[in-house]
Simulated assay, not measured.
Amino acid sequence: MPFLAVTIVAAIVDLVVLAVFHIARPDVDPLTRPTSEYALGAYGAAAGVATGIVGLGALALAWAVRAQTRPAAIVLALFGAAKVAQAFFPIDPPGVETAAGLTHNVLGNVAFFALPLAAVLAVRALAPRWRWAPLAAAGLVVAVVAVLAADLHGAFGVAQRIYLVGCSLWMLAVAAVGIANLPYRSRSTS
């Protein structure tokens, strides 16, 4: 249960930080610019911390579900590790190319495809307790396609934000379902 609680807190922190950045950083165009650009300039450290927290939440969730769905847990752990590592490699400013920025992009691409894959792999294990699991996994897969299509049409930022909110909501839902389905253990009075 503590691992599921870590995941819930991480997902909520991610959603709150993303919402706050829309207010605190109006210079980052949410329609066209990636969320990683919040790490550049004011409040950049908060963006890195939030990314790391998401990764830790995913690692905690991977540990919590490992017995029910090992393939999904492995891919979820890959997502978590990529996000934790990505927190230490900020994106490059536009027009600049560094090894740290390249590392950020590679880790971001790994994470981008890993979480929807984990969601698909977890459907069978989750479906008996969470009837919306197949729809949620399909939604993340559609979000990946939408981000790729939006990138071609100059709307990468908004599609990425929808995808990231979907990822955090999926992790939050899986953890909440896990907590709700824990066996109740009454205290013995003897």
Rank of each mutant, 00 (worst) to 15 (best):
A64W: 03
A45R: 13
Y163V: 03
R66F: 09
D29G: 14
G154C: 08
V177C: 12
P30A: 08
I162C: 11
T103Q: 07
K83Y: 10
V65G: 06
A73C: 11
A119T: 06
R66W: 14
A85R: 01
I8M: 13
F113Q: 02
T69M: 02
A149Q: 12
G166N: 09
G139V: 02
Y38R: 00
N109G: 15
D27F: 07
G48R: 04
G55I: 06
L169I: 12
G101L: 10
T189F: 12
L15V: 15
S168C: 10
H153T: 15
L78E: 00
A155L: 13
S188T: 13
Y43C: 00
L59Q: 06
V141C: 15
D27G: 07
S190Q: 07
P26T: 12
Y184E: 11
W130M: 14
L4E: 10
C167Y: 03
A77G: 15
A50M: 15
F21P: 04
A87D: 08
F3K: 03
G44I: 10
V174Y: 02
D14S: 14
A10N: 01
V165E: 04
I12T: 14
G44C: 11
N105P: 00
G41K: 06
Y163L: 13
K83Q: 15
I23W: 13
V177M: 11
L15H: 10
A62H: 05
V144G: 03
A72M: 06
T7A: 10
C167N: 12
L117D: 07
A77C: 00
P183A: 15
A143C: 09
G154V: 08
F21D: 01
L56R: 01
V165Y: 13
M1K: 08
A60D: 07
G55S: 09
A111C: 06
L102D: 12
T98V: 03
T7N: 01
V147A: 04
A133P: 11
M1C: 03
A5K: 07
I74G: 02
A10S: 15
V75R: 11
F79K: 06
G139I: 02
V165R: 11
S188C: 04
F156S: 09
L121P: 05
L31H: 11
N105M: 08
A50H: 04
A100Q: 14
